[in-house]
Nucleic acid binder design. Structure first.
Lengths: 338, 338
DNA sequence: CTGAAAGCGCTTACAG
DNA sequence: CTGAAAGCGCTTACAG
């Protein structure tokens, strides 16, 4: 293994000079720097991160703390987030450690081991014990999600509130009064997954303001490729003239369901959704929707964390990334129905 | 930050002794060890991994090298593998670094940085340039997949060959002669993804041996939740009495397709599949299938890598994990069709 | 059975 | 503008 010492000897300078060249110190002559760089090239030198870390107490690594997969439900957007975060981190010079054990103990232990400079918590819930670990250790961390108690921590998330209001408005503006909200399984709400709660609650409030009857329908048969929530909703509320879908699994099977029941969109029913952009393209989304850019959220999360790590942050950093409205002609006036 | 020195002072011993206690050296008296452990507890000590790594040149971290997501196609099984590997690594005392950039340069750079002890390459292809990086650097690594040129590297994968043969046999034994193989999009095969190739090619050979006409149908419209490969296959080959599905996306939408076309399984057609076990449960798979245990494959991969890292491996390690046959009554004799 | 000491490969004030 | 030196927090022969 070629070390800094080797490079120094070959270039005829000291270790310190090599180190300064590496960090592009302006104090070093261009001539010396060139000499050193040549030596590094010739020897195939690359800095030993363990040694650097010990010296600087920085690892240039962040930890992505993802919830354990409960049972067998792979969430497509979780997975997409993982990738988006890893890519965003990479772009900012960080490697990413993956922690798939969502127990608070595991997080505390990982923090103690000092293998990373900061952590991003995925799918944060209300009363998430991991959040307390972050607070107590005062370790740099950002929440992907916006739980009820923030405890002074930074967070980044999609603006679910804004998206909910906008979707309700789109339907209200078109004149719809009887609307369905197809959501996640009940346990998602019960477990405090705040993105679900924030969307539902804001939609409910906004609907009331707009004089709309919004009927909540929870998914209860979440089978890959045949989530029946949309179907159940349609059967349970035949008078509804429009539907908001906030549930990836239900969304994926929605088109099939409409076909099955011979329901035409938007002639028989208007449909709007909230979905990650990558999923929208993946399924060639035919519905007017508020589109969440996972990459944008991920990028923002890493930026916030980076600022926190470097100590460049004053006060809490709170970012809600707006979803983009995408029209796909799946909304019509209610009069056209039936 | 509390260091080993602090613990040593408090326990009234030397740093060395503390270190020996940490590594459970049998040379230390139980009395001394107890004293040291008490001091560690009281001070809340935990070892600094950066320092340890520098000293031992081990990081206790492995790198999971996953292919970049091309376009927007999230592969459910890729994601499941990520988790399974991370969990398996954790169980064996390794953390996992996630590398989502599949360029060979990125891998080479990551290896140079010495942030991990070994790497696992996901979705290895024939002629995968990452494989060459592993060979050239002689860095511990295992391939998830079995490319044509192994170059002396370790690999672990599902036994796709065995599964293909068994599925053909199941149908042949039931008397089927006209059978469809619904596979992945053509580019999957063209790009040398060997799991697809090995399954297809073995199935073809076995079919010939059994006097079966096996018609390959490639998926060409891979839309999330409505992959049409199964439908196209049925329409293109109305005489087929059975079908093998090897394509997760097609599998997810298969039930809907059968319903759409009012095709009864197994009365109208027999169906068998190859699928990851987690997916099978996720979609409540109603088809007789060869089930791949991702956890088992992942565990095996980490074990192989661990052996390689510790230098306990003699020669190449080659593991093909057998899929499990699961009967779900989706196979009948061809006579019953129509 | 325990301790003093060297070493892992960097970074960074501090002299010069 | 460059170098000698201390230090980051461990591990591990080597003495004793």
């Amino acid at each position: 293994m070629v070390t800094m010492q080797d490079v120094a000897k070959r270039a005829g300078v000291s270790k310190a000079t090599v180190s300064y060249v590496l960090s592009n110190s302006p104090l070093i002559t261009e001539k010396t720097a060139a000499k050193v760089r040549k030596a590094m090239d010739e020897l195939g030198y690359s800095v030993n991160h363990m040694a650097r870390s010990l010296s600087t107490s920085r690892t240039d690594t962040i930890c992505i703390v993802s919830p354990a997969l409960q049972g067998n439900s792979f969430s497509l957007s979780m997975c997409a987030y993982l990738y988006a975060l890893s890519a965003a981190a990479h772009n900012m010079g960080y490697d990413s450690l993956l922690l798939t054990n969502d127990s608070p103990q595991a997080l505390a232990k990982a923090i103690d081991a000092r293998k990373f400079d900061g952590a991003i918590l995925l799918e944060v819930r209300d009363n998430d014990p991991r959040v307390k670990v972050l607070q107590q250790t005062k370790f740099p961390g950002v929440l992907l999600g916006k739980p009820r108690e923030l405890g002074g921590l930074d967070y980044v998330d999609s603006n679910f509130e804004g998206a909910a209001s906008q979707l309700v408005d789109i339907l209200a503006d078109a004149g719809h009064r009887e609307v369905l909200l197809v959501g996640w399984p009940r346990h998602t709400y019960d477990s405090g997954l705040n993105f679900a709660l924030r969307f539902r609650d804001t939609a409910m409030i906004r609907a009331r303001e707009r004089g709309m009857d919004l009927h909540m329908v929870y998914s209860d048969n979440e089978v890959l490729g045949s989530d029946l929530a949309v179907k159940q909703a349609l059967l349970a509320f035949p008078d509804a003239t429009a539907m908001i879908i906030h549930n990836d699994a239900a969304l994926v099977s929605a088109q099939q369901v409409f076909k099955d029941l011979e329901v035409e969109v938007p002639d028989d029913i208007s449909v709007v959704t909230l979905a990650p952009d990558q999923m929208a393209t993946g399924m060639r989304m035919p519905f007017t929707s508020m589109s969440i850019s996972l990459n944008e959220v991920a990028k923002s999360a890493v930026e916030v964390l980076d600022r926190r790590i470097r100590g460049h942050a004053e006060g809490e950093q709170c970012v809600l990334v707006d979803a983009q409205r995408i029209d796909a002609g799946s909304v019509d006036t209610p009069e056209s129905n039936d």
